[in-house]
Design a protein around this nucleic acid. Structure first.
Length: 271
DNA sequence: AGGTTGACCTGGACGC
DNA sequence: TGCGTCCAGGTCAACC
């Protein structure tokens, strides 16, 4: 479930906790969790200083020049910074031990669409396929990258090579705010409405980032590296509200499938 | 090349 | 209590 706001929250927390720290050693507890790079190159991280923590799309990135460690969170990735004597969380797959005795621990109970990528200088790994960040893209570029496509608008929003950072929650939320049906084909949507959608995407992501991300209670709660829960759930207009009344018009929210994803929308407010 | 679909993974909710 | 079934969803490969 981590989308851009959750990844941003994790990146900020990690940045505050880790910037300036030096890596003592790295332990890979599950070999197949390293998607780019080799276990031997992981060992060469020892001695590197963490300059900062960035984010691209849904991926927090630990920067330890000349290396970058991309954290692919998938649906259930969690990152903790603990003292070394703190009990190890279940399903921990990677531990970055620091010279000050703390450890950054990456845990993931569902090892799906997830892992870590160790990138050397100039290497892009999974970053190569990403479009511009959804929280920063300008209106014209947003429209340009979508223009002419025949896919449903929701499928396009979820396509990380068009736009990076939007997942199922914020796709539904942005489409509601823009008044657009998730199944509408992109080329049938006017430029003015795509402009509205651009504004909705930017707005909903900004609000969610300010709130520290979403917590969805039926699944593993989202928590950042300090284990603070995000509280954007209270602001969801449609996501997870199937069968309940639309907050705007009181009509019952409908559920359907678009791009293989559960999708909730208001039949009256979204056209 | 763009679009679509299904596999991957596992815990929790739910039905019987 | 206990078993079976379904669902969540980001990413990627395979296919149209």
């Amino acid at each position: 479930m981590p989308e851009l706001p959750e990844a941003e929250s994790i990146a900020r927390t990690l940045r505050a906790a880790l910037a300036g720290a030096r890596i003592a050693r790295v332990r890979l507890l599950r070999r197949d969790f390293l998607k780019t790079g080799s276990p031997s190159s992981l060992r060469r991280l020892a001695g590197a200083r963490i300059a900062g923590v960035a984010r691209r799309g849904k991926y927090p990135i630990v920067e330890a020049p000349p290396w970058r460690l991309v954290l692919q969170l998938g649906m259930a990735g969690r990152v903790y910074v603990h003292r070394g004597d703190h009990p190890m969380p279940a399903h921990t797959h990677l531990v970055v031990a620091l010279t000050d005795g703390r450890e950054m621990r990456y845990a993931n109970v569902r090892r799906i669409a997830s892992g870590v990528h160790l990138l050397g200088e100039g290497q892009l790994g999974p970053l190569a396929a990403l479009g511009p960040d959804a929280d920063a893209i300008g209106r014209e570029e947003f429209i340009e990258r979508l223009a002419g496509r025949t896919a449903p608008i929701k499928a396009a929003l979820l396509n990380q090579s068009i736009l990076a950072g939007v997942g199922n929650i914020y796709a539904d939320e942005a489409l509601f705010r823009a008044g657009l049906r998730p199944g509408r084909r992109v080329h049938r949507i006017s430029r003015a409405d795509l402009g509205k959608l651009h504004r909705a995407v930017r707005t909903v992501l900004a609000q969610a980032v300010a709130a520290g991300g979403s917590t969805v209670s039926f699944s593993t709660p989202f928590a950042d590296a300090n284990e603070e829960l995000g509280y954007f759930t209270v602001s969801h207009r449609v996501y997870g509200r199937y069968g309940r009344a639309c907050r705007r018009c009181r009509r019952t929210l409908q559920r359907t499938t678009v791009a293989g994803r559960t999708t909730t929308y208001c039949p009256l407010c979204q056209r």
